[in-house]
Design a protein around this nucleic acid. Structure first.
Lengths: 165, 165
DNA sequence: GGACTGAGTTGCAAATCTAAACCCACCTCC
DNA sequence: GGAGGTGGGTTTAGATTTGCAACTCAGTCC
């Protein structure tokens, strides 16, 4: 069976990259599978035992990630053929989302400190994620952000919105 | 009816902030409701017509967001009582996740340029999101990131992992 | 030959989602 | 003062999706 997009609202996907991304990857298991891929999990049975996901769902989600080119199957043994699942550049590029999810959870739920720290490989310091204005060289808080239609906007939607503080 | 967490894997939630966050908010509608909240949508019927979500689900998701303190109900009219939904500080703090989702979608799917741009309120420049090492003052790529157990780690899990490139 | 492993597929019950109908309090128009 | 509209829901019934267990299949180990 072919893996279908899970999504409602594909009509909206074209006008908002959040909707696009959520339509592709925005279910619980897919995000956790990606997390495991970032941590180095590569084999079907390892995902299955780490996550406790049903095998049919794991199979379907991995197929979808391959269809969308976030993951590729790599043969690691010929007879019988066995494959590992590796992140592609597109999949690896998803890391800021997982970092943001993790840091939000750390800030609001990790009372004893974060269960896992992400660190800079070469120096060992915990990393940070920032939203910045490249022109003003400052970090931005949510209240200082606005949105406006970009070059790919659908013409009829022509007014910008204020972002909530 | 009380809103329940949607999640499988609450057992795992305690050891990983991504799992915690995904368990709370990781369904498609909740992320899109938060997106709309950031854009300034406040009223039930506006969410409903923007998203095309079924009303019972919208009601349940908003209740959950209130239970988890990302959203608060604000009375804007007394007779009959009418409420608006506003982001709390905890809800507003979720913006980096949405920015990360949006920028990934922009990079990989917005062939005509991003449909929406986020800009610095005061200067109008498009903003950027970065993962940095505060010690080395450099931006980090996925391959330069490792993870290790933090202060809130469950004791038995004691080895760090390399993050995939 | 028999047990075991990795990676799935199949079938069915249980949970979730969608759509549509219904409800209630008020307001406006005529 | 009745008819219709608005905002914000709840209820119900039917379609989808998910979760779980059992089964398959190809090949290896002993």
């Amino acid at each position: 069976m072919t893996a279908r997009p899970p999504s409602p609202l594909l009509h909206e996907a074209s006008s908002c990259s959040i909707a696009t991304t959520v339509a592709l990857l925005g279910d619980r298991w897919t995000l956790l599978i990606l997390r495991d891929l970032f941590r180095g999990t590569r084999r079907f049975s390892d995902f299955q035992s780490n996550l406790g996901i049903a095998r049919n769902l794991l199979s379907e989600r991995l197929t979808r990630l391959i269809d969308y080119d976030l993951v590729e199957k790599v043969l690691y043994q010929e007879r019988p053929p066995r494959y590992e699942y590796h992140l592609t550049p597109k999949g690896a590029d998803f890391s800021p989302v997982l970092i943001a999810l993790m840091q939000w959870g750390d800030r609001w739920y990790a009372n004893d400190g974060p269960p896992i720290e992400l660190i800079h490989q070469t120096c060992g310091h915990p990393l940070e994620q920032h939203v910045t204005c490249p022109s003003c060289h400052t970090d931005l808080r949510p209240g200082q952000i606005r949105s406006r239609p970009g070059p790919g906007a659908i013409p009829e939607i022509a007014d910008g919105h204020e972002i909530e503080e």
